[in-house]
Design a protein around this nucleic acid. Structure first.
Ligand SMILES: NC(=O)c1ccc[n+]([C@@H]2O[C@H](COP(=O)([O-])OP(=O)(O)OC[C@H]3O[C@@H](n4cnc5c(N)ncnc54)[C@H](O)[C@@H]3O)[C@@H](O)[C@H]2O)c1
Ligand SMILES: NC(=O)c1ccc[n+]([C@@H]2O[C@H](COP(=O)([O-])OP(=O)(O)OC[C@H]3O[C@@H](n4cnc5c(N)ncnc54)[C@H](O)[C@@H]3O)[C@@H](O)[C@H]2O)c1
Lengths: 228, 228
DNA sequence: AGGAGTTTGTGAACGTGAGAACAAAACCGG
DNA sequence: CCGGTTTTGTTCTCACGTTCACAAACTCCT
């Protein structure tokens, strides 16, 4: 190998970053099932990707496989977790404890995957008497104090769309630099702040688009290819 | 090769399809605000994309703008809605009425965007006495009857991961060909069935990856183990 | 009516990602 | 110790997506 100045953060393509958590989950399942080793083909099957793509993805992390054998499940799992940054716990605040906020607060998948909900915030005083999943709902104005105190870097927005931009602005001002937004709005944030959105309606509309194309021809068998 | 009839269905790139709902939402907001016309630059601002990209996206639908003027908000909005297929209502079933399922059932954004929840299904008999958002929770075994009766093409899975594949199989067998999956599992489905996933943990992990790169002060990764 | 000023639609350049294919590396059985 | 087998890591090519840049098409004002 060319002498790298140590395995320093080579930057990983965005498409690869988005798949690493999927591999991580599959490896966790394999580990729980007592599987010690797996090939790229097996892991590709489990995650629904092409095995060549999987190998290329993993190669961005380093050479953690053994030719002729495959990958050590526990070792690869650790390496991916380390690259993603989920070997440590990330404190998270959730703002907007309505229907969706309640579901998120109760979601056990957070904790088990390296995220810890340190605070639930809501602007509505009547919400603030609640305790959800063992965490007090606190006034939204406590945001800055909590971010400071707990070193929160990731915020989740589950408020109505009308409030989302304001909440985001406050989050950014408080020092949060990564936001997961469930409100159906485009958020404007300064450079250096990452926003990812989860939008139900958009997903359904994408499905509807494809569904619409499928419907007219029930037995749609495109015989476009002129057989050579 | 075959010069296609070049009727309406030119196929739209997947990346464009994913953005059309965002444009649609922005146009709806503009329409509600009484805006009659807007330029690609304005719409691009509102949706957070490059204006050239937006124009190219819209050009796949046809030439609905006017040079020197911009786009007619109401007309463009209708054209996008028609292309996506949300001028009609799509019946949807939700399976798994737990924390998340409740939130989804109560979500008003469905109805207002062309989707109608026609049934809530759960395998747990104790859930089946509930009425959520005016809809009865019914036994999962009613799936086939409901799909048939209401012509359901889109199903939402909000069950635990362990049940998701079974639910998906039943949905496919019942005739559903588009699935939105909230369970953290990779679903295997036959050709012709579309699956989209919404995965909280993956989104957070992607944020964590970038966050980790932003703040080297947390750099716990010391040095690699020397190879060999 | 004509020129000035806008804004669209698109061709071309560029960048990123996917997949096929294969040499290199490791193991295994004799 | 060696040839055969397996599977990785990587290279190459093609497809897709993004952005720039600009002619064409339209409005408005004089
Ligand atoms: N419910 C769903 O399944 C679902 C699905 C997709 C998207 N969404 C979106 O998620 C968001 C929340 O949905 P929901 O159903 O939970 O709504 P909700 O009305 O039940 O809850 C919103 C909560 O946010 C709080 N809030 C309002 N303004 C606030 C502010 N400025 N600061 C802090 N808190 C504030 C409210 O007090 C309320 O408790 C909405 O934007 C909705 O469009 C919801
Ligand atoms: N709660 C969240 O915020 C959240 C976030 C992200 C992902 N998820 C995922 O969404 C899914 C649901 O989460 P939840 O918190 O609502 O879980 P939950 O346990 O509260 O609800 C699951 C529901 O599914 C029902 N169910 C189980 N097996 C079924 C089957 N075979 N057929 C029909 N119904 C069945 C159960 O009776 C229960 O009502 C899980 O896979 C979870 O990982 C949840």
């Amino acid at each position: 190998m060319t002498s790298r100045p140590s395995a320093e953060p080579r930057d990983i393509p965005e498409a690869t970053v988005a798949r690493l958590p999927v591999y991580l989950r599959a490896l966790t399942t394999l580990a729980e099932d007592g599987v010690a080793t797996c090939s790229s083909e097996e892991l590709a099957q489990a995650t629904g990707v092409n095995s060549a793509k999987l190998r290329k993805d993993l190669s961005y992390l380093g050479s953690y496989g053994t030719r002729g054998v495959g990958y050590d499940v526990a070792y690869l799992r650790y390496q991916i977790a380390r690259q993603i940054g989920v070997t440590q716990d990330w404190p998270v605040v959730i703002v907007g404890i309505g229907n969706l906020g309640h579901a998120l607060a109760n979601y056990s998948g957070f904790r088990s995957r390296g995220f810890r909900v340190v605070a639930l915030l809501d602007a509505d005083p009547s919400r603030q008497e609640e305790v959800v999943a063992g965490v007090d709902v606190r006034p939204f104005d406590d945001l800055e104090a909590i971010v400071e105190e707990c070193g929160v870097a990731i915020g989740v927005i589950a408020t109505p769309a009308a409030a989302a931009q304001d909440v985001a602005d406050r989050m950014v001002a408080a020092g949060i630099r990564s936001i997961l937004n469930f409100a159906p709005t485009v958020l404007a944030v300064p450079e250096g702040v990452d926003v990812r959105k989860v939008d139900l309606s958009i997903e359904l509309q994408i499905l509807a688009y494809h569904e619409q194309r499928k419907s007219p021809h029930l037995a749609l068998t495109p015989i476009e290819e002129p057989a050579i």
